[in-house]
Amino acid sequence: MALINLEYYSETLGMNRNVKVIYPEASKVDALTETDIPVLYLLHGMSGNENSWLIRSGIERLVRHTNLAIVMPATELGFYVNTTYGMNYFEATAHELPKVIHNFFPNLSNKREKNFIAGLSMGGYGAYRIGLGTEQFSYVASLSGVLTFEGMQERFDENAAFWGGLFGSWEQFKGSPNEILTLAESFTGKRPKLYAWCGEQDELFPGNEFVASRLKKLGYDLTYETAPGTHEWYYWSQKIESILQWLPIDYVQEERLS
């Protein structure tokens, strides 16, 4: 397995962008002939960057027995959307980044059924925003994701510079493509399979319960799980393994020491 630090110039953002890539073990893929390697785009949260999953989750160890490639981009505090201040993080992550990655790693699959996206907190929102805002990903997963902003209007009002810079006013945000349930209701293509987990003591838990209920009523294939837990890496580092088990890959669970 190789860990690759990729820095490239993003035409969309007008700046250099950092991405970490985990490339599968040579014993799991034929680097010369295989052109169908599955890939998971793994998104960080508000306080993170391209290194967060590597440092905090043990993702390298977890995927070393698979043929899965992992792509971990940095998006600062951009929420993976095309912001009102002109930084088009959605376009850069959803459309430009896969093209860049395939240019550097042509062995990675272009097939929708072998492209997946997941994230935590802000990255959980980003995974659903991209997964339901395109038809590029067949499996979409969120851990403690900001899947709804219902009940959070005060945050828009109290910090209008930040939230308004991302989404515009509350009135502009409601009913826009940046609202997950609006996307889910208007999605007309082949629906991705969805996964969501949230800790029951997390302040985002009520919102996850609300969105999960609505998604199921809309007929989405959603695996929704909860357990005691807060908004912490202690839980995300465990639940990323549940996502790997849920994905259509050959995943070998390591034995844990008792």
Rank of each mutant, 00 (worst) to 15 (best):
S138Q: 01
S138C: 00
Y139T: 00
Y139R: 00
A141T: 00
A141P: 00
S142D: 06
L143E: 03
L143A: 02
L143I: 05
S144P: 11
S144T: 10
S144R: 12
S144H: 15
V146D: 03
L147W: 13
T148I: 03
F149D: 12
E150W: 08
E150S: 11
M152P: 12
Q153A: 02
Q153G: 02
Q153T: 01
E154P: 09
E154Q: 15
F156G: 07
E158I: 10
E158G: 05
E158K: 08
A160C: 12
A161C: 08
F162I: 09
W163H: 04
W163D: 04
W163T: 10
L166P: 09
L166Y: 10
F167K: 04
F167M: 03
F167P: 03
S169L: 06
S169D: 06
W170T: 03
W170N: 03
W170G: 03
Q172P: 05
F173K: 01
K174I: 08
K174W: 09
K174D: 09
G175P: 03
S176G: 06
S176Y: 09
S176N: 05
P177V: 14
P177T: 14
P177Q: 14
P177Y: 15
N178P: 04
E179R: 02
I180L: 05
L181C: 09
L181W: 12
T182G: 11
L183R: 04
L183A: 06
L183G: 02
L183C: 06
A184Y: 06
E185W: 15
S186D: 07
S186P: 05
F187S: 00
T188A: 13
G189L: 03
K190P: 01
K190V: 06
K190R: 07
K190T: 08
R191K: 08
R191D: 01
R191Q: 03
P192C: 00
P192K: 00
K193R: 12
K193S: 11
L194W: 09
A196D: 04
W197D: 10
C198S: 14
C198R: 14
G199Q: 09
Q201E: 03
Q201W: 02
D202N: 09
D202I: 04
E203I: 08
E203K: 11
E203V: 09
E203A: 08
E203L: 10
L204E: 02
L204N: 01
L204F: 01
F205M: 12
P206W: 08
P206C: 07
P206T: 05
G207Y: 13
N208R: 07
N208E: 09
E209M: 12
E209Y: 13
V211L: 13
V211C: 12
A212V: 04
A212P: 03
A212T: 05
S213P: 07
S213E: 14
R214H: 14
R214N: 11
R214F: 08
K217Q: 08
K217V: 12
K217R: 10
K217L: 14
K217Y: 11
L218Y: 13
G219Q: 13
G219I: 12
Y220P: 00
Y220M: 00
Y220A: 01
D221Y: 01
D221G: 01
L222I: 04
L222F: 04
T223V: 15
T223W: 14
T223G: 14
T223A: 15
Y224F: 12
T226H: 10
G229F: 09
T230N: 14
T230A: 15
H231F: 11
E232A: 11
E232H: 13
